[in-house]
Amino acid sequence: MSSATKALTLLSYFSTSRPEIGLSQMCRIAGRDKATTYRHLQALETAGFVEQIPATKQYRLGPALLQLAQVREATVPRKDGAKAALAALADATGETAHATLLSGNVLYGLCDCESPHHSTRAVIDMNVFPLHATASGLCSLAFGPEELLRTAVTNLEAFTENTATTEAELETLVEDVRLTGFGRGDKSFATETQGLAVPVFDHTGHFAGAVAVASVASRFTAELECSIKSELIIAAREITRNWGGTIPDAIEALWTASLNNPTEMESTS
């Protein structure tokens, strides 16, 4: 790893939960000696990538990153940041992959990609996703703003016999997503479709939307579910990275625990 790479890697240790880091703490996090870490921080400070707070001597992200982030956001739209990951997801799972974007209290469809491996495919033909009846919507309720749940319960339309139509039913589904890290649409929007979704995050550190796979229910098995979940994680990490974010450690831990418990997945399929 080059000296420049080592210096730039220090930027990844800053987050919304850890916006300021002192020299000694940075040494422990990065696993480097004090002299090397200080030299790298000095280089980053000279470039404007970090700045030192005079009162505490701790470091925080610098103003140069704001300009770069604005350029990135202006030149690489959200849709472009998701397309390649969706294509890979559809190819790996053999099912339809799609991404959604949360704006205010509305979950919009961003883009989708159908797999060429089957002639029968799930078709995504909606612009706004019901929060209570789709895997992506349940991810939004579990990891998005708290007020979303209050919005969702005002319109619990029954799309199928599996749709949650009471606040208690919806809260149970949302709690399951919070415990596993995966949203599940168990034929809740369309009887012929089984959905799985995971959250994605952007540069703000907050929930930005979801990436999902819509499977034809007749070929959905426990084995396919395990494969989809693994591929969803890969796609979520890539889209989140392209959107300037980082997957929270707590979400990564949920995914790991869920994938390490195949019995649970088999019982819910």
Results as ranks from 00 to 15, higher is better:
C27E: 15
T221H: 03
T93Y: 00
P63H: 09
F201A: 09
F189Q: 04
L141E: 00
A190D: 06
P248L: 09
L44A: 08
R72P: 04
G205C: 10
S12Y: 01
L149Y: 08
E147L: 07
Q70D: 13
L196N: 02
T246Y: 03
F129I: 15
A212S: 15
C226Q: 11
K57H: 09
F143W: 02
R178S: 08
G81V: 06
T180P: 10
I234P: 00
E225C: 04
T120I: 14
M26G: 12
C113Q: 14
Y38K: 15
S267A: 14
V76R: 09
R219T: 00
Q67F: 04
D202K: 11
V128C: 02
I239A: 01
K34P: 00
E51Q: 15
E264S: 11
S24G: 07
G245K: 10
E146P: 01
A135Y: 00
E161T: 12
D186V: 02
F143A: 00
S218F: 07
E157D: 11
S227E: 07
A88H: 10
T100M: 05
K34L: 14
K34F: 12
E171Q: 14
L68Q: 14
S136M: 09
A152Q: 01
V177N: 00
S215R: 01
P248E: 10
C111L: 12
L10G: 06
P262K: 04
R178F: 06
Y38I: 07
Q52S: 10
T75D: 11
R237V: 12
A208F: 05
E45A: 12
G181N: 09
L149D: 02
R32L: 14
A257G: 04
V177P: 03
D186I: 02
A87C: 13
R178N: 05
A43W: 03
A7K: 01
S267M: 11
V200I: 15
D249Q: 10
P130G: 04
L65K: 05
G195M: 04
A4I: 14
T16H: 12
L68G: 10
S3F: 09
D125Y: 01
F220W: 13
P130M: 04
L141S: 00
D249A: 11
S215C: 11
L102N: 08
L8T: 07
L8N: 06
T160E: 01
G183V: 01
L65F: 07
H206P: 02
E266F: 03
D249V: 06
G195S: 05
G245Y: 09
F201P: 06
L170M: 10
I234D: 04
F220P: 01
K187Y: 03
D112Y: 05
H118W: 05
R121C: 05
F201V: 12
H203N: 13
K229G: 02
T36Q: 12
E167S: 13
A122D: 05
I239D: 02
N155D: 14
D80A: 15
K57C: 03
E223V: 13
G104A: 07
A208S: 11
E147R: 10
Q70Y: 01
R237I: 11
F159I: 06
N260S: 07
S119V: 14
P63V: 09
Y108V: 08
D33F: 07
H118N: 10
V153L: 07
